[in-house]
Write a protein that binds this DNA or RNA. Structure first.
Lengths: 238, 238
DNA sequence: CCTCGCGAACGAACAGTGTTCGTGTCAAGT
DNA sequence: ACTTGACACGAACACTGTTCGTTCGCGAGG
Protein backbone atom coordinates (compact mmCIF):
# COMPACT_ATOMS: atom_id res chain seq x y z
CA UNK A 1 0.00 0.00 0.00
CA UNK A 2 1.40 3.33 -0.99
CA UNK A 3 0.98 6.25 1.30
CA UNK A 4 0.53 9.55 -0.46
CA UNK A 5 2.34 12.30 1.33
CA UNK A 6 0.58 15.62 0.85
CA UNK A 7 3.17 18.29 0.40
CA UNK A 8 1.98 21.78 1.24
CA UNK A 9 1.42 23.87 -1.82
CA UNK A 10 2.90 27.33 -1.98
CA UNK A 11 -0.24 28.54 -0.26
CA UNK A 12 -0.84 25.85 2.22
CA UNK A 13 0.10 28.02 5.17
CA UNK A 14 -1.97 31.00 4.15
CA UNK A 15 -5.29 31.70 5.67
CA UNK A 16 -8.32 31.72 3.48
CA UNK A 17 -7.84 34.31 0.77
CA UNK A 18 -9.52 37.61 1.38
CA UNK A 19 -12.65 38.33 -0.54
CA UNK A 20 -11.92 40.49 -3.50
CA UNK A 21 -12.72 44.15 -3.06
CA UNK A 22 -15.64 45.61 -4.95
CA UNK A 23 -17.42 48.94 -4.80
CA UNK A 24 -20.41 47.20 -3.23
CA UNK A 25 -18.32 45.74 -0.46
CA UNK A 26 -16.77 49.14 0.19
CA UNK A 27 -20.17 50.80 0.33
CA UNK A 28 -21.49 48.04 2.59
CA UNK A 29 -18.61 48.68 4.97
CA UNK A 30 -19.22 52.42 4.84
CA UNK A 31 -22.90 51.93 5.67
CA UNK A 32 -21.99 49.68 8.58
CA UNK A 33 -19.42 52.09 9.98
CA UNK A 34 -21.78 55.03 9.48
CA UNK A 35 -24.49 53.37 11.54
CA UNK A 36 -22.02 52.76 14.36
CA UNK A 37 -19.97 55.93 14.37
CA UNK A 38 -21.54 58.45 12.01
CA UNK A 39 -20.33 59.24 8.52
CA UNK A 40 -18.02 61.96 9.77
CA UNK A 41 -15.91 59.24 11.28
CA UNK A 42 -15.79 57.12 8.16
CA UNK A 43 -12.36 57.70 6.66
CA UNK A 44 -10.53 55.77 3.99
CA UNK A 45 -8.44 54.36 6.81
CA UNK A 46 -11.32 53.30 9.01
CA UNK A 47 -12.94 51.71 5.97
CA UNK A 48 -9.78 49.89 5.09
CA UNK A 49 -9.51 48.58 8.63
CA UNK A 50 -13.10 47.39 8.48
CA UNK A 51 -12.29 45.57 5.23
CA UNK A 52 -8.99 44.23 6.56
CA UNK A 53 -6.93 45.92 3.87
CA UNK A 54 -4.96 49.10 3.36
CA UNK A 55 -6.46 52.47 2.46
CA UNK A 56 -4.62 52.64 -0.86
CA UNK A 57 -6.50 49.54 -2.04
CA UNK A 58 -9.76 51.44 -2.04
CA UNK A 59 -8.52 53.67 -4.82
CA UNK A 60 -8.56 50.77 -7.26
CA UNK A 61 -12.37 50.94 -7.02
CA UNK A 62 -13.32 54.54 -6.23
CA UNK A 63 -11.56 57.56 -7.64
CA UNK A 64 -11.58 59.42 -4.33
CA UNK A 65 -13.62 60.05 -1.22
CA UNK A 66 -16.08 62.24 -3.14
CA UNK A 67 -16.93 59.38 -5.44
CA UNK A 68 -17.41 57.10 -2.47
CA UNK A 69 -19.76 59.73 -1.02
CA UNK A 70 -21.81 59.55 -4.23
CA UNK A 71 -22.17 55.81 -4.00
CA UNK A 72 -23.19 56.04 -0.34
CA UNK A 73 -25.75 58.79 -0.88
CA UNK A 74 -27.16 56.92 -3.85
CA UNK A 75 -27.53 53.80 -1.71
CA UNK A 76 -29.47 55.83 0.87
CA UNK A 77 -31.64 57.61 -1.69
CA UNK A 78 -32.53 54.28 -3.19
CA UNK A 79 -34.27 53.34 0.06
CA UNK A 80 -36.79 56.15 -0.24
CA UNK A 81 -40.33 54.97 -0.60
CA UNK A 82 -41.96 56.76 -3.48
CA UNK A 83 -45.75 56.73 -3.73
CA UNK A 84 -47.64 56.59 -7.00
CA UNK A 85 -48.85 60.07 -7.85
CA UNK A 86 -52.35 60.93 -6.63
CA UNK A 87 -53.47 64.32 -7.98
CA UNK A 88 -55.84 64.85 -5.08
CA UNK A 89 -53.12 64.40 -2.51
CA UNK A 90 -50.08 65.81 -4.27
CA UNK A 91 -49.26 68.23 -1.49
CA UNK A 92 -49.32 65.60 1.22
CA UNK A 93 -47.36 63.25 -1.01
CA UNK A 94 -44.59 65.81 -1.53
CA UNK A 95 -44.46 66.27 2.23
CA UNK A 96 -44.22 62.52 2.68
CA UNK A 97 -41.30 62.35 0.31
CA UNK A 98 -39.48 65.05 2.21
CA UNK A 99 -40.24 63.47 5.56
CA UNK A 100 -39.01 60.17 4.19
CA UNK A 101 -35.76 61.69 3.03
CA UNK A 102 -35.20 63.40 6.38
CA UNK A 103 -35.84 60.10 8.13
CA UNK A 104 -33.25 58.37 5.95
CA UNK A 105 -30.70 61.02 6.83
CA UNK A 106 -31.49 60.51 10.49
CA UNK A 107 -31.05 56.78 10.15
CA UNK A 108 -27.71 57.35 8.50
CA UNK A 109 -26.04 59.80 10.83
CA UNK A 110 -23.71 62.30 9.25
CA UNK A 111 -24.66 61.45 5.69
CA UNK A 112 -26.45 64.75 5.05
CA UNK A 113 -23.21 66.59 4.77
CA UNK A 114 -22.04 64.34 1.99
CA UNK A 115 -25.34 64.92 0.22
CA UNK A 116 -25.06 68.71 0.18
CA UNK A 117 -24.55 70.07 -3.30
CA UNK A 118 -24.87 66.66 -4.83
CA UNK A 119 -26.74 66.31 -8.11
CA UNK A 120 -28.24 62.88 -8.56
CA UNK A 121 -26.37 60.97 -11.24
CA UNK A 122 -27.04 57.42 -10.11
CA UNK A 123 -30.14 55.33 -10.01
CA UNK A 124 -31.23 55.95 -6.43
CA UNK A 125 -31.14 59.70 -6.56
CA UNK A 126 -32.68 59.86 -10.00
CA UNK A 127 -35.53 57.68 -8.86
CA UNK A 128 -36.28 60.12 -6.06
CA UNK A 129 -36.20 63.08 -8.44
CA UNK A 130 -38.40 61.23 -10.93
CA UNK A 131 -40.93 60.51 -8.20
CA UNK A 132 -41.07 64.08 -6.98
CA UNK A 133 -41.46 65.51 -10.47
CA UNK A 134 -44.21 63.03 -11.28
CA UNK A 135 -46.17 63.86 -8.13
CA UNK A 136 -45.86 67.62 -8.52
CA UNK A 137 -46.83 67.58 -12.17
CA UNK A 138 -49.72 65.21 -11.55
CA UNK A 139 -50.89 67.78 -9.02
CA UNK A 140 -50.92 70.55 -11.58
CA UNK A 141 -47.63 72.21 -10.75
CA UNK A 142 -45.98 73.59 -13.87
CA UNK A 143 -42.98 71.63 -15.09
CA UNK A 144 -40.63 74.56 -14.50
CA UNK A 145 -41.81 75.08 -10.94
CA UNK A 146 -41.69 71.32 -10.31
CA UNK A 147 -38.16 71.10 -11.63
CA UNK A 148 -36.89 73.94 -9.51
CA UNK A 149 -38.78 72.65 -6.53
CA UNK A 150 -36.71 69.48 -6.68
CA UNK A 151 -33.64 71.64 -6.03
CA UNK A 152 -35.35 73.63 -3.34
CA UNK A 153 -36.73 70.69 -1.43
CA UNK A 154 -33.42 68.81 -1.58
CA UNK A 155 -31.59 71.88 -0.31
CA UNK A 156 -34.08 72.33 2.51
CA UNK A 157 -34.16 68.72 3.69
CA UNK A 158 -30.42 68.37 3.31
CA UNK A 159 -29.80 71.56 5.28
CA UNK A 160 -32.11 70.53 8.11
CA UNK A 161 -30.55 67.09 8.30
CA UNK A 162 -27.07 68.55 8.21
CA UNK A 163 -27.88 71.03 10.95
CA UNK A 164 -29.31 68.24 13.06
CA UNK A 165 -26.15 66.24 12.61
CA UNK A 166 -24.07 69.23 13.66
CA UNK A 167 -26.12 69.59 16.82
CA UNK A 168 -25.91 65.93 17.55
CA UNK A 169 -22.16 65.95 17.21
CA UNK A 170 -21.82 69.06 19.38
CA UNK A 171 -24.00 67.78 22.12
CA UNK A 172 -22.50 64.36 22.09
CA UNK A 173 -25.31 63.53 24.38
CA UNK A 174 -27.74 61.80 22.09
CA UNK A 175 -27.11 58.52 20.34
CA UNK A 176 -26.21 58.68 16.69
CA UNK A 177 -29.33 59.04 14.59
CA UNK A 178 -31.55 60.50 17.28
CA UNK A 179 -33.02 63.91 17.09
CA UNK A 180 -31.01 66.58 18.82
CA UNK A 181 -32.37 67.94 22.04
CA UNK A 182 -33.75 71.13 20.61
CA UNK A 183 -35.29 72.12 23.89
CA UNK A 184 -31.91 72.19 25.58
CA UNK A 185 -30.41 74.16 22.71
CA UNK A 186 -33.18 76.69 22.84
CA UNK A 187 -33.00 76.95 26.59
CA UNK A 188 -29.44 78.15 26.18
CA UNK A 189 -30.63 80.69 23.66
CA UNK A 190 -33.49 81.83 25.87
CA UNK A 191 -31.15 82.41 28.75
CA UNK A 192 -28.81 84.28 26.51
CA UNK A 193 -31.42 86.46 24.89
CA UNK A 194 -33.04 87.32 28.19
CA UNK A 195 -29.72 88.74 29.27
CA UNK A 196 -29.65 91.09 26.31
CA UNK A 197 -31.33 94.00 28.00
CA UNK A 198 -32.47 96.72 25.57
CA UNK A 199 -30.27 95.78 22.67
CA UNK A 200 -32.70 93.48 20.93
CA UNK A 201 -36.20 94.31 22.09
CA UNK A 202 -38.04 92.11 19.58
CA UNK A 203 -35.91 89.08 20.32
CA UNK A 204 -36.37 89.60 24.05
CA UNK A 205 -40.10 90.08 23.71
CA UNK A 206 -40.58 86.93 21.66
CA UNK A 207 -37.99 84.73 23.32
CA UNK A 208 -40.72 82.23 24.10
CA UNK A 209 -41.69 81.82 20.45
CA UNK A 210 -38.09 81.77 19.33
CA UNK A 211 -37.37 78.89 21.63
CA UNK A 212 -40.66 77.02 21.29
CA UNK A 213 -41.01 73.75 19.50
CA UNK A 214 -38.65 70.94 18.65
CA UNK A 215 -36.96 69.95 15.44
CA UNK A 216 -40.03 68.22 14.08
CA UNK A 217 -42.32 71.19 14.73
CA UNK A 218 -39.93 73.42 12.85
CA UNK A 219 -39.50 70.98 10.03
CA UNK A 220 -43.26 70.62 9.61
CA UNK A 221 -43.62 74.40 9.60
CA UNK A 222 -41.06 74.48 6.82
CA UNK A 223 -42.98 71.85 4.88
CA UNK A 224 -46.16 73.89 5.22
CA UNK A 225 -44.41 77.02 4.00
CA UNK A 226 -42.71 75.30 1.08
CA UNK A 227 -45.73 73.37 -0.16
CA UNK A 228 -48.22 76.22 0.30
CA UNK A 229 -45.75 78.52 -1.38
CA UNK A 230 -45.31 76.14 -4.31
CA UNK A 231 -49.05 75.94 -4.79
CA UNK A 232 -49.33 79.73 -4.64
CA UNK A 233 -46.55 80.63 -7.08
CA UNK A 234 -46.42 77.69 -9.49
CA UNK A 235 -48.35 79.42 -12.27
CA UNK A 236 -45.84 82.25 -12.37
CA UNK A 237 -43.24 79.82 -13.67
CA UNK A 238 -44.08 78.34 -17.00
CA UNK B 1 34.15 117.12 26.12
CA UNK B 2 32.67 113.81 27.06
CA UNK B 3 31.39 111.58 24.35
CA UNK B 4 28.46 109.46 25.39
CA UNK B 5 28.73 105.99 24.02
CA UNK B 6 25.31 104.44 23.45
CA UNK B 7 25.47 100.82 24.52
CA UNK B 8 22.83 98.64 22.94
CA UNK B 9 20.12 97.69 25.37
CA UNK B 10 19.20 94.04 25.80
CA UNK B 11 16.80 94.48 22.91
CA UNK B 12 18.76 96.69 20.63
CA UNK B 13 19.37 93.94 18.11
CA UNK B 14 15.79 92.71 18.01
CA UNK B 15 13.42 93.73 15.33
CA UNK B 16 10.40 95.73 16.27
CA UNK B 17 8.32 93.65 18.67
CA UNK B 18 5.37 91.86 17.16
CA UNK B 19 2.00 93.31 17.72
CA UNK B 20 0.21 91.53 20.46
CA UNK B 21 -2.35 88.99 19.33
CA UNK B 22 -6.02 89.73 19.84
CA UNK B 23 -9.20 88.05 18.66
CA UNK B 24 -9.81 90.98 16.34
CA UNK B 25 -6.44 90.60 14.70
CA UNK B 26 -7.05 86.90 14.28
CA UNK B 27 -10.45 87.50 12.71
CA UNK B 28 -9.00 90.22 10.47
CA UNK B 29 -6.40 87.74 9.24
CA UNK B 30 -9.06 85.09 8.70
CA UNK B 31 -11.16 87.53 6.66
CA UNK B 32 -8.16 88.46 4.55
CA UNK B 33 -7.16 84.85 3.89
CA UNK B 34 -10.78 83.91 3.17
CA UNK B 35 -11.04 86.57 0.49
CA UNK B 36 -7.88 85.27 -1.16
CA UNK B 37 -8.22 81.53 -0.80
CA UNK B 38 -11.68 80.70 0.52
CA UNK B 39 -12.52 79.79 4.09
CA UNK B 40 -11.96 76.10 3.45
CA UNK B 41 -8.29 76.89 3.13
CA UNK B 42 -8.10 78.93 6.29
CA UNK B 43 -6.47 76.65 8.87
CA UNK B 44 -4.96 77.47 12.23
CA UNK B 45 -1.60 77.05 10.53
CA UNK B 46 -2.30 79.30 7.59
CA UNK B 47 -3.67 81.90 10.01
CA UNK B 48 -0.60 81.64 12.18
CA UNK B 49 1.63 82.13 9.15
CA UNK B 50 -0.37 85.17 8.13
CA UNK B 51 0.12 86.58 11.64
CA UNK B 52 3.79 85.56 11.77
CA UNK B 53 3.35 83.34 14.80
CA UNK B 54 2.74 79.69 15.61
CA UNK B 55 -0.63 77.97 15.52
CA UNK B 56 -0.58 77.18 19.20
CA UNK B 57 -0.58 80.92 19.98
CA UNK B 58 -4.07 81.29 18.59
CA UNK B 59 -5.46 79.11 21.35
CA UNK B 60 -4.69 81.79 23.92
CA UNK B 61 -7.48 83.80 22.29
CA UNK B 62 -9.98 81.35 20.80
CA UNK B 63 -10.95 78.07 22.39
CA UNK B 64 -10.86 76.16 19.11
CA UNK B 65 -11.59 76.45 15.42
CA UNK B 66 -15.35 76.35 16.06
CA UNK B 67 -15.14 79.43 18.21
CA UNK B 68 -13.11 81.17 15.57
CA UNK B 69 -15.81 80.24 13.07
CA UNK B 70 -18.37 81.96 15.31
CA UNK B 71 -16.38 85.17 15.40
CA UNK B 72 -15.94 85.12 11.63
CA UNK B 73 -19.61 84.45 10.87
CA UNK B 74 -20.61 87.14 13.33
CA UNK B 75 -18.31 89.60 11.59
CA UNK B 76 -19.96 88.77 8.28
CA UNK B 77 -23.51 88.90 9.66
CA UNK B 78 -22.76 92.30 11.11
CA UNK B 79 -22.31 93.66 7.59
CA UNK B 80 -25.88 92.89 6.63
CA UNK B 81 -27.93 95.96 5.81
CA UNK B 82 -31.20 95.81 7.68
CA UNK B 83 -34.03 98.07 6.55
CA UNK B 84 -36.50 99.70 8.92
CA UNK B 85 -39.72 97.69 8.84
CA UNK B 86 -42.33 98.89 6.34
CA UNK B 87 -45.58 96.97 6.79
CA UNK B 88 -46.58 97.55 3.16
CA UNK B 89 -43.40 96.02 1.84
CA UNK B 90 -42.65 93.34 4.40
CA UNK B 91 -42.45 90.57 1.82
CA UNK B 92 -39.99 92.39 -0.38
CA UNK B 93 -38.02 93.41 2.68
CA UNK B 94 -37.66 89.82 3.82
CA UNK B 95 -36.46 88.90 0.35
CA UNK B 96 -33.96 91.72 0.47
CA UNK B 97 -32.59 90.46 3.74
CA UNK B 98 -32.15 87.00 2.31
CA UNK B 99 -30.56 88.30 -0.86
CA UNK B 100 -28.25 90.42 1.24
CA UNK B 101 -27.18 87.44 3.30
CA UNK B 102 -26.54 85.33 0.20
CA UNK B 103 -24.47 88.13 -1.25
CA UNK B 104 -22.37 88.31 1.90
CA UNK B 105 -21.73 84.57 1.69
CA UNK B 106 -20.68 85.00 -1.92
CA UNK B 107 -18.31 87.78 -1.01
CA UNK B 108 -16.80 85.59 1.68
CA UNK B 109 -16.17 82.36 -0.17
CA UNK B 110 -16.49 79.20 1.82
CA UNK B 111 -17.98 80.87 4.87
CA UNK B 112 -21.43 79.33 4.43
CA UNK B 113 -20.23 75.99 5.64
CA UNK B 114 -19.08 77.47 8.91
CA UNK B 115 -22.47 79.13 9.28
CA UNK B 116 -24.47 75.91 8.95
CA UNK B 117 -26.15 74.95 12.18
CA UNK B 118 -24.96 78.07 13.91
CA UNK B 119 -27.31 79.83 16.31
CA UNK B 120 -26.57 83.53 16.59
CA UNK B 121 -25.07 84.30 19.96
CA UNK B 122 -23.09 87.39 19.11
CA UNK B 123 -24.11 90.89 18.14
CA UNK B 124 -23.94 90.58 14.39
CA UNK B 125 -26.11 87.52 14.07
CA UNK B 126 -28.57 88.71 16.70
CA UNK B 127 -28.97 91.99 14.86
CA UNK B 128 -29.94 90.11 11.72
CA UNK B 129 -32.45 87.96 13.59
CA UNK B 130 -33.88 91.06 15.31
CA UNK B 131 -34.32 92.75 11.96
CA UNK B 132 -36.05 89.82 10.36
CA UNK B 133 -38.44 89.32 13.28
CA UNK B 134 -39.29 93.01 13.32
CA UNK B 135 -40.07 93.10 9.61
CA UNK B 136 -42.15 89.94 9.62
CA UNK B 137 -44.16 90.98 12.66
CA UNK B 138 -44.69 94.50 11.32
CA UNK B 139 -46.11 92.79 8.24
CA UNK B 140 -48.68 90.89 10.26
CA UNK B 141 -46.92 87.53 10.48
CA UNK B 142 -47.66 85.83 13.80
CA UNK B 143 -44.76 85.83 16.25
CA UNK B 144 -44.53 82.04 16.20
CA UNK B 145 -44.40 81.87 12.43
CA UNK B 146 -41.91 84.74 12.33
CA UNK B 147 -39.70 83.03 14.87
CA UNK B 148 -39.63 79.75 13.01
CA UNK B 149 -39.21 81.54 9.73
CA UNK B 150 -35.90 82.89 11.01
CA UNK B 151 -34.68 79.30 11.26
CA UNK B 152 -36.11 78.37 7.90
CA UNK B 153 -34.70 81.29 6.00
CA UNK B 154 -31.26 80.92 7.56
CA UNK B 155 -31.26 77.22 6.67
CA UNK B 156 -32.31 77.96 3.12
CA UNK B 157 -29.86 80.78 2.42
CA UNK B 158 -27.05 78.93 4.18
CA UNK B 159 -27.74 75.77 2.19
CA UNK B 160 -27.81 77.59 -1.15
CA UNK B 161 -24.60 79.42 -0.34
CA UNK B 162 -22.95 76.25 0.83
CA UNK B 163 -23.98 74.39 -2.30
CA UNK B 164 -22.64 77.19 -4.42
CA UNK B 165 -19.34 77.02 -2.61
CA UNK B 166 -19.18 73.28 -3.18
CA UNK B 167 -19.74 73.80 -6.91
CA UNK B 168 -17.17 76.53 -7.05
CA UNK B 169 -14.59 74.37 -5.36
CA UNK B 170 -15.36 71.41 -7.62
CA UNK B 171 -15.18 73.36 -10.81
CA UNK B 172 -12.12 75.22 -9.80
CA UNK B 173 -12.79 77.22 -12.86
CA UNK B 174 -14.35 80.35 -11.43
CA UNK B 175 -12.62 82.82 -9.19
CA UNK B 176 -13.42 82.67 -5.51
CA UNK B 177 -16.66 84.45 -4.79
CA UNK B 178 -18.14 84.22 -8.26
CA UNK B 179 -21.29 82.37 -9.00
CA UNK B 180 -20.75 78.82 -10.17
CA UNK B 181 -21.40 78.14 -13.81
CA UNK B 182 -24.76 76.56 -13.37
CA UNK B 183 -25.28 76.26 -17.08
CA UNK B 184 -22.26 74.01 -17.44
CA UNK B 185 -23.35 71.92 -14.48
CA UNK B 186 -26.79 71.47 -15.91
CA UNK B 187 -25.47 70.69 -19.36
CA UNK B 188 -23.73 67.70 -17.83
CA UNK B 189 -26.97 66.69 -16.22
CA UNK B 190 -28.93 67.17 -19.43
CA UNK B 191 -26.54 64.98 -21.33
CA UNK B 192 -26.72 62.40 -18.63
CA UNK B 193 -30.49 62.37 -18.35
CA UNK B 194 -30.98 62.20 -22.08
CA UNK B 195 -29.01 59.00 -22.04
CA UNK B 196 -31.40 57.43 -19.58
CA UNK B 197 -33.69 55.83 -22.10
CA UNK B 198 -36.97 54.60 -20.60
CA UNK B 199 -35.85 54.42 -17.00
CA UNK B 200 -36.93 57.90 -16.01
CA UNK B 201 -39.55 59.15 -18.43
CA UNK B 202 -40.52 62.27 -16.50
CA UNK B 203 -36.94 63.39 -16.04
CA UNK B 204 -36.23 62.80 -19.72
CA UNK B 205 -39.34 64.61 -20.81
CA UNK B 206 -38.61 67.66 -18.71
CA UNK B 207 -34.85 67.73 -19.03
CA UNK B 208 -35.10 71.22 -20.45
CA UNK B 209 -36.89 72.56 -17.39
CA UNK B 210 -34.64 70.64 -15.03
CA UNK B 211 -31.62 72.27 -16.53
CA UNK B 212 -33.04 75.73 -17.20
CA UNK B 213 -32.04 78.79 -15.29
CA UNK B 214 -28.99 79.75 -13.28
CA UNK B 215 -28.37 79.97 -9.58
CA UNK B 216 -30.08 83.33 -9.22
CA UNK B 217 -33.24 82.19 -11.01
CA UNK B 218 -33.48 79.23 -8.70
CA UNK B 219 -32.76 81.29 -5.63
CA UNK B 220 -35.43 83.80 -6.56
CA UNK B 221 -37.91 80.98 -7.14
CA UNK B 222 -37.09 79.76 -3.65
CA UNK B 223 -37.68 83.25 -2.23
CA UNK B 224 -41.05 83.41 -3.95
CA UNK B 225 -42.02 80.02 -2.57
CA UNK B 226 -40.86 80.78 0.96
CA UNK B 227 -42.39 84.22 1.24
CA UNK B 228 -45.68 83.33 -0.41
CA UNK B 229 -45.81 80.24 1.75
CA UNK B 230 -45.18 82.25 4.90
CA UNK B 231 -47.98 84.63 4.02
CA UNK B 232 -50.32 81.73 3.32
CA UNK B 233 -49.70 79.69 6.47
CA UNK B 234 -48.78 82.27 9.11
CA UNK B 235 -52.19 82.36 10.77
CA UNK B 236 -52.04 78.61 11.43
CA UNK B 237 -49.20 79.22 13.86
CA UNK B 238 -50.19 81.31 16.82
C1' DC C 1 3.54 24.91 -20.49
C1' DC C 2 5.47 29.51 -20.48
C1' DT C 3 5.46 34.44 -21.05
C1' DC C 4 3.56 38.83 -21.02
C1' DG C 5 0.43 42.44 -19.93
C1' DC C 6 -2.95 44.38 -17.15
C1' DG C 7 -5.48 45.34 -13.16
C1' DA C 8 -5.84 44.81 -8.28
C1' DA C 9 -3.71 45.17 -3.86
C1' DC C 10 -1.26 47.77 -0.68
C1' DG C 11 2.99 49.66 2.13
C1' DA C 12 5.47 53.79 2.57
C1' DA C 13 5.43 58.34 2.27
C1' DC C 14 3.74 62.99 1.35
C1' DA C 15 1.52 67.18 2.79
C1' DG C 16 -1.73 68.61 5.40
C1' DT C 17 -5.36 69.09 9.69
C1' DG C 18 -6.77 70.63 14.86
C1' DT C 19 -5.10 70.42 19.24
C1' DT C 20 -2.39 69.59 23.65
C1' DC C 21 1.60 69.77 26.58
C1' DG C 22 5.47 71.87 28.43
C1' DT C 23 8.49 75.74 28.76
C1' DG C 24 9.92 80.53 28.60
C1' DT C 25 8.90 85.46 29.01
C1' DC C 26 6.71 89.48 30.65
C1' DA C 27 4.03 92.41 33.54
C1' DA C 28 1.64 93.33 37.69
C1' DG C 29 1.06 92.78 42.50
C1' DT C 30 2.78 91.87 47.15
C1' DA D 1 13.02 90.52 45.22
C1' DC D 2 9.66 87.00 44.61
C1' DT D 3 5.30 85.12 43.00
C1' DT D 4 1.58 84.55 39.98
C1' DG D 5 -1.09 84.63 35.89
C1' DA D 6 -1.46 85.35 31.07
C1' DC D 7 0.49 85.14 26.67
C1' DA D 8 3.45 83.09 23.20
C1' DC D 9 4.83 79.18 20.78
C1' DG D 10 7.78 74.82 19.52
C1' DA D 11 7.34 69.99 19.57
C1' DA D 12 4.54 66.37 19.30
C1' DC D 13 0.25 63.70 18.96
C1' DA D 14 -3.29 61.43 16.27
C1' DC D 15 -5.43 61.86 12.46
C1' DT D 16 -6.81 63.02 7.20
C1' DG D 17 -6.87 62.01 1.74
C1' DT D 18 -3.96 60.69 -1.67
C1' DT D 19 0.09 59.30 -4.65
C1' DC D 20 3.93 56.48 -5.98
C1' DG D 21 6.23 52.36 -6.62
C1' DT D 22 6.28 47.45 -6.15
C1' DT D 23 4.34 42.87 -6.02
C1' DC D 24 1.00 39.49 -7.08
C1' DG D 25 -2.55 37.03 -9.54
C1' DC D 26 -5.04 36.02 -13.51
C1' DG D 27 -6.10 35.47 -18.24
C1' DA D 28 -4.84 35.44 -23.02
C1' DG D 29 -1.85 34.18 -26.55
C1' DG D 30 2.01 31.67 -28.55
Amino acid sequence: MRVRVALPSGRADRVEPKARLTVDRIVDAAMELMKREGYDNVSMRSLARELDTGPASLYAHVANKDELDQYVIDRISGMLEIPDPDPDRWQEQLKELMRGMLQLFREHPGSARAAMGMIPTMEGGLRAAEGMMAIAIAGGVTPQAAAWFCDLSAAYVGAIAYEESIWTARENSTAAGEQPDHAAIDEQLRTFVEGMGDRFPVLVRFATELTAGGGDDRFEFGLDVLISGLAAVSKRYS
